[in-house]
């Protein structure tokens, strides 16, 4: 049971990192549906870098760097070129899925390094994740930078007039967001599941994307959602720890996805939609062309 709790908290951490990255970008008005692609890149390149150098730190940094690069790419397509953000995000996802399949294949198999040691019985990333939630909350509710990010996500034209550089603020947000997604992938590939395999994420990024919608762009609600989904994901991976012999293991794997669908459905109720609409960054997904 303890093992289940620690593993599920680590899973929650990965959801938290990726979803916070998405949340920061969305708060600035940029939707990135390519979370899964950025995570796959972070996981695969981080895995390869760590295996080649024998250093976890380098692996994590590579994950961070590739995430930043993909954030920059998404920013270029959606901010500078003013393109459709969904198309660009789909591009990031498919290029991540396609290229990592090819690049990672020679490294199929376990990482072959000593596991990252736990701190007080938990993965060190769990503490980092909680700190990050705190930092994000602080950023958005207590700093002028956070206010600037929120204002370009709500009404870029007004923000521009009041002296905020919309493009720069948005670039900052998507690159920071991309870094967190890449790092989330690297944590997955280096610590949570250090065995590389074809498309080994199987939906983490898409659940993280859904978590941002569930959280109503609030980091604390996001953390709560991530903890629930982490536990559910872990349950679906190793149901025998909690409910041995109940349901096929393949059906268990569908459970987090089915629940995601049910939550999406519940959130479409009128009561929710009013609150959700109020919380949603008004300019989310809209390209902004400086007038």
């Amino acid at each position: 049971m303890w093992e289940f709790a620690t593993r599920s908290l680590e899973a929650s951490t990965i959801f938290t990192f990726a979803a916070l990255g998405e949340l920061i970008g969305q708060r600035s008005g940029i939707l990135n549906v390519g979370v899964e692609g950025a995570m796959l890149f972070g996981a695969t390149l981080g895995f390869i870098a760590a295996q080649l150098t024998g250093s976890y730190l380098i692996g994590l940094l590579v994950g961070l760097a590739i995430g930043a690069l993909l954030g920059l790419l998404h920013g270029f397509f959606s901010i500078t070129l003013g393109g459709d953000q969904v198309v660009s995000g789909m591009g990031i996802w498919i290029v991540g899925f396609g290229l990592t399949t090819y690049i990672g294949n020679p490294y199929t198999g376990p990482l072959g390094m000593a596991r990252i040691p736990n701190v007080f019985g938990l993965s060190p990333f769990v503490y980092l994740g909680i700190l990050l939630v705190l930092a994000t909350w602080f950023l958005f509710s207590k700093t002028s930078l956070g206010l600037r990010i929120r204002s370009v996500g709500e009404n870029p034209a007004v923000a521009e007039v009041s002296g905020i550089d919309v493009a720069r603020t948005r670039y900052f947000s998507v690159i920071l967001g991309g870094m967190l997604m890449g790092l989330a992938g690297a944590i997955y590939g280096l610590s949570y599941n250090p065995v590389w395999n074809y498309n080994f994420l199987m939906g983490w990024g898409f659940i993280a994307l859904a978590l941002v919608f569930f959280s109503m762009w609030n980091p604390w609600l996001l953390l709560g959602g991530a903890i629930l989904f982490g536990a559910m994901w872990q349950l679906s991976l190793s149901p025998e720890l909690v409910l041995p012999g109940f349901l096929s293991r393949y059906l268990w794997r569908t459970v987090p996805f089915v629940i995601t669908l049910l939550v999406l459905f519940a959130m479409s109720s009128k009561w929710f939609r009013g609150r959700w609409g109020a919380a949603k960054p008004a300019a989310l997904g809209e390209p902004y062309i400086k007038g």
Partner: peptide
């Protein structure tokens, strides 16, 4: 390495995104 057809998928997609412009 295995997965060349998938890599092509990725490259086609990202080029296409750039060409949307």
């Amino acid at each position: 390495s295995f997965g060349l057809d998938y890599a092509l998928l990725g490259v086609l997609m990202i080029t296409l995104v750039a060409f949307q412009f």
